[in-house]
Structure formats: C-alpha cells, structure tokens
C-alpha cells in the first residue's frame, strides 16, 4: 500500500451492507472477492515485523531445557541413539509387535482382496456397458437405414399415386368422349 492510502477508511458503498439485517457470510464473501480481484503485483506480501523471542516458549520447553539433569539426559539420548534399534529389540515385547504387524498385514491383504474383487466387478460392468453401447450403435444405424428405405418407398408410392391419378383422369375423359359418340 502506498503513502496516499495511509490512514485509509472504507468508503460508503465499497462493501454493500444491509445494516438492518447484517449478513456476515455475504460481507466476508465481498471482502474475499475484493482481495481476489487485486492484480497479482498489488497483493500484499506479509512480512514479519518482529521475531517473537519467547520469554518462555512453552512451559514444557522450559522444563526440557533447564538443569544439568536435562543436559545429561540429552547427552545420554544422543549416545544411545545408534543402539536404539537393539535396545528396542531387547526391551520391547517383540512377539506382541510381530503379532500386531502380522495382523496389520493380514488386514491389509484382506482389504487388497476386497479392493481387487471390487475392481473386477467394476471391470465387468464396464465391459457390459461397452457391449450395450455397441448394440445401441448398430441399432441406431439400422434404424437410420430402415428410415431411409421407408422414405424412398414413400416417394415411390407418391409417384405411383400421381400416375394413377393421371390415368384415372384420362380414363374419365375417355369415358365422357365415348358416351358422346354413343349418344350421337
């Protein structure tokens, strides 16, 4: 924000507010839209104004970092770190962990079986759907062919009707001419 904008205030109507019936969700949407509409360069990069040097970051940390005992503990922990897998192996109930791992694996396998069965089912459905699509395609193709044939047939029939009408008209005229000849 530049110097001119310092001390800025919202202008009347910048955000539409119904003061009789405040709708926080709507106002927040307008604020969010307003922020989103800012060009990329105008977006504010938040910078830290101070580094929070904590007087006591958390009471737990205070406990953790104070005293010779804590220091000794940290050194001991560092020293024993390379041996931690061995220590874990000796201390922890390996059988229980092994059993738990087997159970987890078993559960995972079952889940995998279930998922692969589901995949097979979905695959079958997909194939069936594809067959249906093919059938529908040939059906619509056949319908189009049949409709074309019917159209041609209709045209032929119309033509035949017109010829027959003309023949009928001619025969009518001829009939009248023959009647005249007989009456003479």
């Amino acid at each position: 924000m530049n110097k001119e904008e310092k001390g800025r205030k919202y202008k009347e109507g910048e955000i539409k507010i119904d003061y009789e019936n405040i709708d926080v969700a709507n106002i927040m949407d307008q604020i969010k839209k307003k922020i989103a509409q800012r060009p990329k360069g105008a977006r504010k990069e938040f910078r830290r104004e101070y580094s929070p040097a904590k007087t006591s970051p958390s009471v737990l940390e205070q406990y953790e970092t104070s005293g010779i005992k804590a220091k000794m503990k940290r050194i001991l922990l560092k020293l024993t770190k390379p041996f931690s897998p061995l220590i874990k192996l000796l201390i922890f109930p390996v059988y229980a962990q092994f059993r738990e791992t087997v159970l987890i694996l078993d559960q995972t396998n079952r889940r995998l079986d279930f998922l692969s069965a589901s995949i097979d089912e979905v695959d079958q459905r997909l194939k069936r759907a594809m067959e249906y699509t093919k059938l529908l395609h040939s059906l619509s193709h056949n319908i189009v062919v049949e409709l074309t044939k019917l159209k041609i047939e209709e045209e032929n029939l119309r033509l035949k009707t017109r010829i027959m009408e003309k023949d009928f008209e001619f025969l009518g005229k001829r009939e009248r001419a023959v009647e005249k000849q007989i009456l003479k």
Binding site: M1, R8, K44, F46, E49, Y50
Partner: peptide, 11 residues
Amino acid sequence: FDFFLFFKRET
C-alpha cells in the same frame, strides 16, 4: 502481534 504491527505500518 505480527498482523497488528504490519497493519499499523500499512494503514
């Protein structure tokens, strides 16, 4: 604190 101080400087 961060936001407030930055707000003061910006606005």
